[in-house]
Design a protein around this nucleic acid. Structure first.
Length: 978
RNA sequence: GCGGGGGUGCCCGAGCCAGGUCAAAGGGGCGGGACUGAGGCUCCCGUGGCGUAGGCCUGCGUGGGUUCAAAUCCCACCCCCCGCACCA
């Protein structure tokens, strides 16, 4: 499955890399290098990345997020911060419980999938089977994957403090979550109410996506119908609709003559609905008692009374009516519903059928569609328009009818307006009328909400039918509480978000966030403290757990029992509430330890950074902010969120069904941790999807190999004495090295990791390669390269920590590079004049190439006229100093104020224009440096171009047959070829 | 549909917020050259079109507009991707 073609040399390098990686991981581990403890003498930096869910192996997409986190953690550490980066595991919710149940049940699909997962980590087949057998217990699934993911993270070189590891199923964590929910309830943010859910009648329980047969291929949804009550003698015939506003256009009611209907007592009223509907309604918080059963045909020909206008309408037969859908009764709006229109036409054409059912054909013919919605682009009868357009001949043409229904539904919903016959809803857009008519009918007692699944039918993996049930006592978190929202907004406004463009999504989420069910009746997790039947749902139990990391290692070390972790305990440690003596006495936890925990919490909090994938914005990250502001005082609110996009592979989304998921565990085995880290950061910036392409990965590997070779070569030099005098190329190189340090630091400070990697690795590599090309003096070069390498490995440590540590060690260092200081630039070695002069040399070489290309004859000599008169340089500096927005007129005015320039007014104006047009570079070196650069680079230029080079002073050329010296400008010397 | 993001050269991907130095960084691919016994390694050069001197023309989804100047700002349109709640 891995297609990674490498040469023997690449393979050897990869093997070497992997060995180096293992070596350093073990060293870091042994030295507990990344365990962080409070240290008031140092600034702290507390960051987290969400704990992974342990239902299976992670893939390279997850790895991207954690790698980015690690790069930043490592950078901050080198910048002198006391960095805490902990990790834990999430086991809450239904998926793990569900997979465990499936394995216990012997579901072959689940077993084979998990076998393949386990095989990623376990070689021995017998061992694999043992592990699978253990999976009948959900906690074994969770523990297995928590353990292997821990190993994965270590083998990618993540600098995590592992002492603080826990899972959300641990009793200590449960205690923490219960405390949190008590707090939320105290504040009035928890409410109870009715809520529809997907429900398996066999398991008698709620089902999630992974419990549904085929649930990964389609999206199961709850659809809300409005059941409208048509009076039929002493009962109501309840017709279900998705479009209650069309009640004004009803002409008749349809029932399926062959289906079984019942008369039933429902909440004290007598309803006529399909037999299946009566069954389902029992689950929707209705009291249902079936009185009698009968065939649908018994209803046909009867008349009932619609509730909007009190008109009498006929009950007619239709085969398209599905007794298993909602109530099994539908009302007919032939003007606007294609099914109704076609069914009515069918019946009009079939007098015999009418007679069979005891209906006067004349009466059917008298039924005319009633137009109630005006919509541009359609006639009064949109249903007829579409039916004719699609040439639908009968109600049996379901596909076409569905398409037609869709088309009209959309058009009317978004563009339709209620006509005058719909008082009091006339002139309302359909979109609004729909809701208002529904409310109106419900208020009159003539309608009720009925839920149905979509698609239908849906089955549970256990085989049972999945229907919609209504829970009447569902617990919700009320994010809509205005007091709460106000605080959350305040936190959001103060928070840094990078990339900033995602802020809008947070704002929109905050806008619509309202009631959210927060507990379920099944799955793993923490029981609601005030209603033990419920288990707190997984997104609701992972909002402020960053606080828990700050103390869990103390709890474990001191052997404190979960029972001791009472609400008073958390109140004291996290909120500073209560008397410590009292808390100590009641919990049995020593006072001193309580104080240590309180101090440690306050040392790390607030959270400085949360990094994760953008998918979390609309739920987890928003809840994270909400819960923080609900529980903690403002000074402990989180400060910054950073986000990254996903990873695809060879241009395609990774998915189980495609079988193209690249598990994270394969990375350190088949590639290399450093290679992965480098590629995943370099391939795209945070806001862009990364494409894992073998070919590109390979090219990055080759660059890494170049670095490795080069670095080892430099290591071999040993200590080199600093030369007395530095040549220009070396000065250029040292300037580049030091300005690169500044650029890397800036990029990292701004979280531009791709730019950082580009500069620290790729550009740096090319500086050194270029330096080698332009330089000749061996001793001096060696010294400069070693100087560079000592800084370079530091710049590289965050992204490729293993190889950087290795080189660092080979350079003779004993301490961990990971714990060393980020390099400071040697400001005095930065010389922009020299950088620009060398830039000019390279640009000139390019120019010469271009000229040679268009020449007919092959030249052998190149004359370069460098350094026009001094005043021209003054003009360039002037333009540069005025900035990129300056206008020509302003520049000229300024220039004319300088006597030396005023003398050359006309030429100055020409030069300024040339600069503005980009023909002369804006940023140039001084005349002196430029001159020196060309003299010193003369041989290099000659070698590059294969020409004899003569460098002349542009102000006094000794040979200039074409007068090119006069055309020389700063940063753009004149050239002449012959 | 609603909400969000995006369309850049053969491909990937920077630039766009803060308009000019952008024919547009960096990779990849392709072509040429060097090295080599050989190379699938490494290095150099080229890669929109035209051009006997560093230039000109076209060009950053499409069509308009603002500006001395637009890949970058504004408007309209077309296309693609993501989220829409009990799945973590």
């Amino acid at each position: 499955m891995i297609i990674f073609f490498v040469t023997e040399r690449d393979a050897a390098f990869l093997r070497e890399l992997r060995e180096i990686e293992k070596k350093w991981q073990e060293k870091w581990d042994r030295a507990k290098a990344f365990e962080a403890n409070p240290d008031p003498s140092r600034p702290k930096f507390y960051m987290t990345v969400p704990y992974p869910y342990t239902s299976g192996p992670l893939h390279i997409g997850h790895g991207r997020t954690y790698t980015i986190g690690d790069i930043y953690a490592r950078y901050k550490r080198m910048k002198g911060f006391n960095v805490l980066w902990p990790m834990a595991f999430h086991i809450t919710g239904t998926p793990i419980a569900s997979i465990s149940a499936r394995i216990a049940r012997g579901d072959p699909e689940a077993i084979s999938l998990y076998r393949s997962y386990v095989r990623l980590y376990v070689d021995d087949e017998r061992e694999v089977e043992k592990v699978i057998a253990s999976f009948v217990k959900p906690e074994n699934v969770a523990n297995f994957f928590a353990n292997v993911i821990t190993r994965d993270f270590k083998s990618l070189g993540y600098s995590i403090d592992w002492r603080r590891r826990f899972t959300t199923g641990d009793p200590e964590y449960n205690a923490f979550i219960r405390w949190q929910f008590l707090k939320l309830r105290e504040k009035g943010f928890i409410v109870q109410g009715r809520h529809p859910i997907l429900y398996c009648v066999n398991d008698e329980n709620a089902v999630g996506e992974d419990d549904i047969r085929g649930g990964d291929e389609f999206k199961a949804e709850v659809v809300e119908f409005v059941g409208i009550k048509f009076e039929l003698r002493d009962s109501y015939l309840v017709a279900a609709t998705l479009r209650p506003e069309t009640i004004f256009g009803v002409t008749n009611v349809w029932v399926n003559p062959k289906a079984i209907y019942v008369k039933a007592k429902v909440d004290g009223e007598t309803w006529i609905i399909s037999k299946q509907a009566a069954e389902k309604l029992r689950y929707q918080a209705h009291k249902v008692e079936v009185l009698e059963e009968f065939e649908g045909r018994r209803l046909i020909g009867l008349r009932c009374r619609e509730p909007a206008r009190n008109r009498e309408v006929l009950i007619l037969p239709a085969t398209f009516v599905d007794a298993d859908n909602a109530t099994g009764v539908v009302y007919s709006v032939p003007a606007h519903a294609p099914y109704d229109y076609v069914a009515l036409e069918d019946l009009k054409k079939n007098e015999k059928m009418c007679i069979d059912y005891g209906i006067e054909p004349r009466e059917v013919h008298l039924i005319e569609p009633i137009s109630i919605i005006r919509i541009p682009g359609f006639s009064d009868y949109p249903a007829r328009d579409v039916v004719e357009k699609l040439h639908i001949m009968s109600q049996e043409e379901r596909d076409k009818l569905d398409e037609a229904t869709q088309e009209i539904y959309k058009a009317e919903f978004y563009h339709g307006v209620m006509k005058d016959n719909c008082e009091p809803f006339s002139k309302l857009p359909v979109r609004e009328a729909k809701e208002k008519v529904k409310e109106w009918l419900i208020k009159k007692g003539k309608a009720t909400i009925i839920y149905e699944t979509s698609p239908r039918p849906i089955f549970c993996r256990c085989g049972g039918r999945v229907i919609v049930a209504v829970l009447s006592d569902q617990w919700f978190i009320n994010y809509g509480d205005p007091r709460w929202k106000e605080l959350a907004w305040k936190a959001l406004r103060k928070m840094e978000i990078y990339p900033e463009k995602y802020r809008k999504l947070f704002e929109d989420t905050f806008e619509w966030l309202a009631l959210r069910p927060c507990a379920r009746r099944r799955g793993l997790g923490t029981r609601l403290p005030f209603d033990e039947r419920w288990i707190i749902e997984s997104l609701s139990d992972s909002t402020i757990y960053m606080a828990f990391y700050t103390i869990i290692h103390h709890i474990r070390k001191a052997g404190i029992k979960a029972e001791q972790l009472t609400p008073e305990f958390f109140d004291y440690v996290f909120l500073g509430k209560g008397d410590v003596e009292e808390v100590s006495r009641r919990t049995g936890i020593p006072r001193q330890l309580l104080e240590i925990m309180r101090r440690e919490f306050l040392y790390w909090y607030p959270l400085d950074l949360r990094h994760t994938a953008i998918g979390h914005i609309t739920n987890h990250l928003s809840f994270f902010i909400f819960h923080h502001v609900a529980i903690f005082p403002e000074e402990l609110w989180p400060k910054k969120i950073t986000l990254n996009e996903y990873v695809i592979r060879e241009g395609a989304k990774m998915s189980k069904s495609k079988g193209n998921v690249l598990p994270l565990v394969e990375i350190p085995r088949r590639y290399s941790a450093d290679l992965y880290r480098l590629y995943i950061t370099y391939a795209a910036d945070l806001a862009t999807v990364v494409d894992w392409r073998e070919k590109y990965v390979l090219s990055v590997l080759r660059r890494l190999e170049s670095f490795w070779r080069l670095a080892n070569e430099i290591v071999e030099y040993g200590d080199v004495k600093k030369p007395e005098k530095l040549s220009l190329p070396t000065k250029w190189f040292l300037s580049k090295v030091n300005s690169a340090i500044i650029r890397c630091t800036e990029h990292l400070e701004n979280f531009r990791l791709r730019d950082y990697v580009q500069e620290a690795f790729f550009n740096f590599l090319s500086y050194i390669e270029t330096y080698r090309r332009i330089h000749a003096n061996e001793e001096e070069r060696r010294w400069a390269e070693r100087y560079a390498l000592e800084r370079w490995v530091k710049l590289l440590l965050p992204v490729v920590p293993h190889i950087a540590e290795e080189i660092w060690e080979r350079l003779g260092n004993r301490e961990f590079l990971s714990l060393s200081k980020w390099p400071e630039p040697d400001q005095e070695l930065i010389d922009m004049d020299i950088e620009m002069a060398v830039e000019t040399v390279f640009r000139t070489i390019d120019d010469v190439r271009e000229v040679v290309k268009v020449m007919r004859t092959k030249p052998s000599k190149l004359y370069i006229y460098v350094g026009p008169e001094e005043w021209k340089y003054k003009v360039c500096k002037l333009v540069q100093s005025l900035g990129p927005t300056a206008r020509i007129s302003d520049i000229m005015r300024k220039a004319m104020g300088i006597p030396e320039l005023k003398k050359h007014a006309e030429e100055v104006s020409r030069l300024v224009k040339a600069i503005m047009e980009g023909k002369v570079p804006r940023e140039v070196a001084s005349r002196d440096v430029e001159m020196k650069a060309f003299k010193e680079f003369k041989d290099f230029i000659g070698r590059e171009l294969g020409l004899e080079v003569i460098v002349e002073d542009a102000t006094k050329p000794s040979y200039d047959p074409k007068g090119r010296a006069r055309g020389a400008e700063p940063g753009r010397p004149g050239i002449y070829l012959e």
